[in-house]
Design a protein around this nucleic acid. Structure first.
Lengths: 161, 161
DNA sequence: GTCAGTGCAAACTTTTTGCAACTAC
DNA sequence: GTAGTTGCAAAAAGTTTGCACTGAC
């Protein structure tokens, strides 16, 4: 993921961050820049706070967990980050310059697959709703990945289901 | 919600529960029956474990929280319950005899609106995916309810956004 | 110089686990 | 009688809060 992102994308992300911070009267700190670099440098599209922290340490940049949590909120508001609740696990995902997609989550092993589907997602975004102003649509398909589905079938057979 | 459910629905739910338990070699306990009654007797479609527990106490039936958590898992597997992650809040929802719908969640106040949309949901259910066997589709629209959207606009103006 | 932002540790919330007692089958 | 279930309490996991210190503006 990370390494595929162009310099141009990263410059744009930093520009958007700074614009947002200035607009809100917030400060441009090295921590915030490093967190954004880490987010857009993750190897996997979805990651936990824990994994983001590990990435920052790998970049030789230590931040307090509390700082991470604080800034996740801010970055979502800035439109640079999505938050997902995959099963009971909270994950984040870089959102700038990412194609609309939805998520398939395996109930057994927790595996998450991203699926692009522009038509469906844009259809959703267009949906007008009385009494609600939507800005993001999240679609989650729950089920079992091929591997876990097979394991499950084997187990069911044993139980004479 | 609760009180609108017919006796026939409740009988059916209990039948499905017992069938599932027998099929799995699990036991039909008074706790399990009471939990299902509570779930299908909630006033609001979405509820937390806390609220479900309160409902059980109102029914003069005390169960340990651990028992509730255990049985939520089982009831989801039995197809009688959905679990949602609305923002950071875990909610449950009765699923038997409930029309497919999706959820609008206010980022500010946490309000959740159910929206029926059979066409969209069935379209999703039909989607064939390589390497994944989906059984449930969850759609969440995040945004702001009319009230919070207005409050937010006022605040933004103050910040000279 | 001021105050937002940070690190750290403690607190809090939510969920899980271990174990003895109980009960559905 | 024998497991599967339950209640209880302790533990674990994830997130938030309070406060003193730092550094962006």
């Amino acid at each position: 993921m990370a390494n595929e992102r162009t310099n141009q994308t990263m410059e744009q992300v930093h520009r958007l961050l700074e614009e947002y911070l200035h607009r809100r009267g917030l400060r441009v700190t090295p921590e915030r820049k490093a967190i954004v670099d880490a987010i857009y440098g993750m190897d996997e599209p979805h990651f936990t706070i824990e994994q983001l922290n590990a990435r920052l340490e790998a970049m030789h940049f230590r931040v307090a967990l509390a700082t991470l949590y604080n800034n996740m909120e801010m970055l979502m508001d800035a439109g640079l980050l999505w938050r997902h609740y995959f099963g009971p696990v909270t994950c984040y995902e870089a959102s700038y310059d990412v194609k609309p997609h939805f998520h398939c989550i395996c109930r057994e092993c927790g595996m998450v697959m991203n699926l692009s589907n522009d038509r469906l997602t844009s259809r959703l975004a267009e949906t007008r709703i009385r009494g609600f102003k939507a800005d993001d649509a999240y679609i989650y398909l729950y089920g079992f990945c091929t591997k876990c589905a097979a394991a499950r079938r084997r187990r069911s057979k044993k139980l004479k289901k």
